[in-house]
Structure formats: C-alpha cells, structure tokens
C-alpha cells in the first residue's frame, strides 16, 4: 500500500478528498466516499492511512481514535487495529483498509476497490 496507488484502474475507484491540511498531524478525520465511511489518518511521519470508519466491535468512531505509527485504538473500548491492514490486534473483527496518498497538489487521494 505504501508504494502508492495502483496504476491499474486509473480512473475507477480514485477519489480526491480535498486538501491534506484538513487532517491535523497525528489525528484522523472521517469522510463519506461513494457511500462508504472512511477514516483517514495523517501519521506523524507525514504519510497517510485509510481504514473503514466504524469499529466492528460496537460501532465506535474510528476517526476519533488515538494512533501511533502502526495502530489505531478505538475510543470506545480500546480495540486496536493495524493501520496498514485493518487487522485487529486485540481480537476484534477487521477494518477494511484502503490505499491512500497525497497527490502533487497536496490533496488526499483515496482508492476504493
């Protein structure tokens, strides 16, 4: 995923979510993209991660979670999920993960499958 977005399917599935600055460093914000709820995080190293926005455990708002370089922790019951894969490290079901990156103009670009 960190290699950037796949070149295949150039138009299909790519969504521009607007400027990077709407996400403070180290935090996440939620976006509605083509009917899907996606939480996009801006890590302290500047890179982006995107996972589905609703915790599979009890529906908690993932975008409000606390993150580090590798995981996001849901604010409701502290279930953790790998930002790269969406897999839970605490036994919950997985989140979906999405390829995401910033383009040359500083916009967030998300790829839906």
């Amino acid at each position: 995923m960190m290699a950037g977005l796949s070149n295949a399917g150039q138009d299909a599935g790519l969504h521009v979510l607007g400027p990077l600055e709407q996400i403070p460093v180290g935090e996440g914000r939620a976006f509605g993209v083509a009917g899907e709820q996606v939480a996009v995080f801006r890590l302290r190293d500047g890179s982006l991660r995107a996972v589905s926005a609703v915790c599979p455990h009890k529906g908690g708002p993932i975008a409000d979670g606390t993150i580090d370089r590798s995981v996001v922790m849901c604010p409701l019951h502290q279930h953790s999920f790998e930002l790269e894969t969406g897999c839970s490290t605490t036994g919950a079901g997985p989140l979906r993960s999405y390829p995401v990156a910033a383009d040359a103009a500083g916009n967030i670009v998300l790829q839906l499958p």
Binding site: H15, V16, Q22, P24, A30, F31, G32, Q37, A53, G59
Partner: peptide, 21 residues
C-alpha cells in the same frame, strides 16, 4: 485548536460527501 476539531467522525449526517467520479 485544530482543523475539523468538531467535525463528526461517525456516519451521523453532515459528513462531507465526496461526489463519485
């Protein structure tokens, strides 16, 4: 203090809906 500090994080209603291209 931060951009979008009080922006919703859940599928409640006012999420910025990005148009499908």
């Amino acid at each position: 203090f931060t951009p979008g500090q009080f922006r919703t994080a859940l599928p409640l209603e006012v999420l910025p809906q990005v148009p499908v291209r």
